[in-house]
Design a binder for these strands. Structure first.
Lengths: 344, 344
DNA sequence: CTGAAAGCGCTAACAG
DNA sequence: CTGTTAGCGCTTTCAG
């Protein structure tokens, strides 16, 4: 195996403990010894064995993250920002993807706990609180991320999804649309909250929201384009076709765009479209997409900092952080008016 | 802390070793005892402490992956496929992002080795072989991924990038283009190989490749759109403007598209464009993008399997696996001809 | 300022 | 079939 503390200690004729103390910058070591030890460590390219350290002191300097889908731009971006924060504090990120399957998620959580992560961060796809409860171990601190369980008193970092729904819908109202539909997702807190926001906004402006205008679908994260396409086709069948749609996420909006164009209609002249996430390619699409930006990288950063906090001081009462969303208007709602204002 | 083997052993009046053996499915345990033990494990929701196990037997059932950028669709997709393979064999994936910075990469590799990963997978951004050599520990098996160091005898899994360059360029030639440019990247093996493939194809068809037609840029992975935009503008300045461009990756091609349209020219009528990576949104772009698909998920899968192999039997001579690329033609090269053939 | 002793939770090797 | 003995590499008392 690699170089161990023992090796260095023997070579230098000191004890393992002394070397260990130097390693961790403990102050009660003579200056001469300290220098000798440090020098030898460099030379031998010593790397502490984190397993042993973890076993000995109960901490692993490790954070586990479980997301439904790594390829999803939102989660990828968050994971990246999170990783950056952790790296600066010498923590490693262990990543697990649940493929949006509650069973896999459960398995992954078990695995992460087995590995002794100091903090667990989860964007859960469990549909009910009860199943979620059984997953933890009551000792590893846990941060709910993006998806909340309202009645669970746990740490949460996510966007203000009710506000997301309001912002999107109000924008559509502001550009004069009256028949506003929503293609939404199932069960998760962002889905429910965005729907609520959508309803809030309509109500506030005395607009109708016939139940046919709300289309709820599954698996919008991975195959949103296909589902959005199909859901939009359904909306196009209605006797009174909507003149605007608030889509659960950008990918869904992309699919919806396709359906509209394929039906020979125009975006936004006939139907305006807004998504959510403001993903990297939104401005390069066939129809540059208006979207609600929920500060993705920011979310990752904040989550990372909370994780660090939790791994230091275990107390801390449940804390809920909501990042406020912002509107980015592009062609899919405001048409050519987008050009001068938002670049491209 | 959590439930330990010892707890179960004491409760049941057997030894720790017995319980440990049951845990690992060791065959030399009586049926009655086994059942009792298993039952109690379930009840207590026992989770083995992987740190302790790793320390005791020298393996951690963990694989480390270092990529330049997690948000890049290529790496995200690969990481996902890789994670899937590992999960099925009860391995965890520890992910690190180097932000395309050789120093960070070095630091991350050290950290992963400290954590005792069984296998290390690296898409390295070191520009020279020498700096790379010093990173490893000569004992953790290592797989080079996507980016190779030709003269290093190590395991490699990646696409056949020379073929990528040939395929792209030959496609442009086949649709009748004569003045074919290339926007390429720096230093890494895919960059050099794709450039080589580009040159091979031109040479084979007796086409000129003036040096001004090759624009090499940095950081094409993260900000490819901006760089592609700027590089394309430079190509548009030439007295003899190219009639086709093979772009290093899709993001770069997206930026180039923008530059061309903004200059009042058409894609593909005036300038045809092909990218590489065939990313998820290629078909939804303003100009649906032709691209070379290098079997992203496949790459992840293969890498995962090789990693499993390596973590079992350490011998194994360096193995180099090249995945053959395929062409996906869309509007950006073949114009409306794309419609009937490739959907959308 | 330095070090000896004990132990983290688990497994490998060998005895009975 | 079951258990004893040792030890993985490091940290934590606590005594010198």
């Amino acid at each position: 195996m690699a170089v161990r503390l023992k090796d260095i200690a023997q070579e230098l004729g000191v004890s393992v403990v002394t070397v260990s103390k130097v390693l961790r910058g403990n102050s009660d070591i003579g200056d001469a010894t300290r220098k000798r030890v440090l020098k030898r460590m460099k030379e031998l390219n010593y790397r502490p064995n984190m397993l042993a350290r973890g076993l000995a002191n109960g901490r692993t300097y490790t954070v586990g993250l479980v997301v439904p889908d790594l390829v999803h731009p939102f989660f990828a971006e968050c994971a990246k920002a999170l990783g950056g924060v952790l790296r600066n504090s010498n923590r490693a990120l262990i990543l697990a993807s649940s493929e949006d399957d509650p069973e896999i998620e459960k398995q992954e959580i078990r695995a992460l706990i087995s590995r002794g992560v100091d903090v667990l961060i989860i964007a859960s796809c469990q549909s009910d609180l009860r199943s979620f409860r059984q997953l933890g171990d009551e000792v590893t601190p846990c941060i709910l991320f993006d998806r909340n369980f309202p009645h669970l008193k746990a740490h949460f970092v996510g966007s203000d999804d009710t506000r997301v729904g309001e912002l999107a819908t109000e924008h559509l109202i502001k550009i004069g649309r009256k028949r506003i539909a929503h293609i939404g997702a199932k069960d998760t807190s962002p889905a429910l909250d965005r729907l609520r926001g959508y309803r809030n906004a309509l109500e506030k402006h005395d607009l109708a929201s016939p139940s046919k205008y709300v289309v709820i679908r599954d698996r919008l994260e991975e195959t949103g384009d296909l589902i959005g396409f199909e859901a939009m086709q359904q909306l196009l069948q209605l006797k009174s076709v909507p003149d605007a749609v608030f889509c659960y996420n950008d990918l869904t909006a992309v699919g919806a765009t396709d359906a509209i164009l394929q039906a020979g209609l125009r975006v936004p002249e006939d139907i305006a479209l807004i998504g959510c996430g403001n993903f990297r390619y939104a401005k390069y699409l066939r129809v540059p997409l208006s979207s609600i930006d929920h500060g993705t990288a920011e979310l990752g950063r904040i989550t990372g900092e909370l994780a660090l906090d939790l791994s230091e001081k275990r107390e801390r009462k449940p804390k809920s952080i909501l990042v406020p969303p912002t509107l980015v208007a592009r062609h899919s709602t405001v048409g050519d008016a987008a050009r001068p204002k938002t670049k491209k």
